[in-house]
Design a protein around this nucleic acid. Structure first.
Lengths: 225, 225
DNA sequence: ATAAATTTTTAGATTTGTCTAAATTTATAT
DNA sequence: ATATAAATTTAGACAAATCTAAAAATTTAT
């Protein structure tokens, strides 16, 4: 697998992969929306990717990545998430700033670069949004990412991501001492407004609104970092 | 200066900058050779860059970067050299492997990325080849890079680059303890074969051939790293 | 000084990725 | 079941970046 695709091709493949979650075929319009392109452009590219055997496609039937297409997608996602981790951990980018830069970096195609970056970062398992990073073989943990608002009581978990990167939210998180990778546990949840009391490692118990809890994602496993 | 140019445009600008060293205008053929493109392609691009006021160009007269073009070139060179430094220092790439990857990374256009990378690397003054890195304002040290073979005796300098990245040379450098950034001094030079005795920081005096000395470049200043 | 050689530019074609507008196919609703 | 709506594809155009081949300008050499 030499893996030399254009930036456009890579973006299409990656986007199809993400839309494909619930393994139904992806439609032209869905892709067009996701890529901010016109449906006609999608059809054109689908023909090209089909010719390259990266996806299965019959006119009017939607598309699915082939096994090969999936592998390519995972390489791109690996690059993206490793760069996000690098930007966040090493260059101290805010959580909401990493994505756009990683969108560009992910198209730099050097296997050696990515594998060495992985090593330099100490083989992180998840990116700053809590999404798992595929390893050099394309294998990826299926961590169950759950919303803090839905977490059962008295369960120690790790913060893996935040869904809203407005400075208002970030300020609040900062103030409460909630940061990426920190251990957290829900002690109590009030029926009245679904607000909850939480406990973070060495901090005193604090309470947060349902609104905030809905923005916070956590994982049970604790293998990353 | 929004600085959003295509990869092609950036490559042309950068290449013109390098060819322009001796401030004579660059010719179509020179550029074509350097960029491995046909002369006709050069003319086309020169018209475009002229329209964007990045260079001065009258048909048949060669080209020179404008002040604006120079600024753009320095931004690209800054990116390139910072990435080279990163690859070499942090990811442990060999000196001869950094260039090609940096060629790709240099086109990722985020000022914030580059400025944070610079900070993360602790504001290095030169890249692994000993070439100076422009700062965020485009200012660049004019270090005088001199060949070890031509260095006067008893002058403490710093190794800043090597001209030959064959594994044979690298192996020898490794063995002798000559690495990027190390302090070195020529103690004696023999008329017979121009071989010389050198002294490196804490190592015993050793001798090297003229052949090897010709591959090694050093700087007087010692502000980097 | 002028012919020959070289360099540079122009003209027209090609590829990639995109678009608009029209045609076609599929899905939906009475 | 068939008309209407929605989704998809086709056809043709366009911009960017490249190329080849031919024309024009410049340089060089006798």
């Amino acid at each position: 697998m030499a893996l030399k695709y254009s930036i456009s091709e890579e973006n299409y493949i990656k986007t199809i992969y993400h839309l494909q979650k619930d393994d139904e075929p992806v439609t032209t319009n869905e892709l067009a929306t996701a890529l901010k392109a016109k449906p006609a452009s999608i059809t054109d590219m689908m023909k090209k990717l089909k010719a390259k055997k990266l996806l299965h496609y019959q006119p009017y039937q939607g598309f699915k990545l082939s096994a090969e297409g999936n592998k390519v997608a995972l390489v791109i996602i690996r690059r993206h998430r490793l760069w996000e981790y690098f930007l966040s951990e090493k260059l101290k980018f805010a959580w909401d700033e990493v994505h756009d830069v990683a969108e560009q970096l992910e198209h730099v195609s050097s296997k050696k670069l990515i594998d060495k970056l992985d090593e330099f970062l100490n083989f992180p398992r998840t990116d700053p949004h809590g999404d798992p990073i595929p390893d050099a073989n394309g294998k990826m943990e299926t961590t169950e990412k759950v919303c803090l608002a839905d977490l059962p009581l008295h369960t120690m978990v790790k913060v893996c991501g935040v869904n809203d990167h407005s400075s208002a939210v970030l300020e609040l998180l900062e103030h409460k001492g909630i940061h990426l990778g920190c251990r957290i546990e829900v002690k109590k949840r009030f029926a009245y407004d679904q607000s909850m009391e939480i406990k973070i490692s060495k901090l005193p118990v604090d309470s947060i609104s349902e609104q905030l809890a809905k923005k916070i994602f956590v994982v049970y496993e604790s293998t990353s970092k």
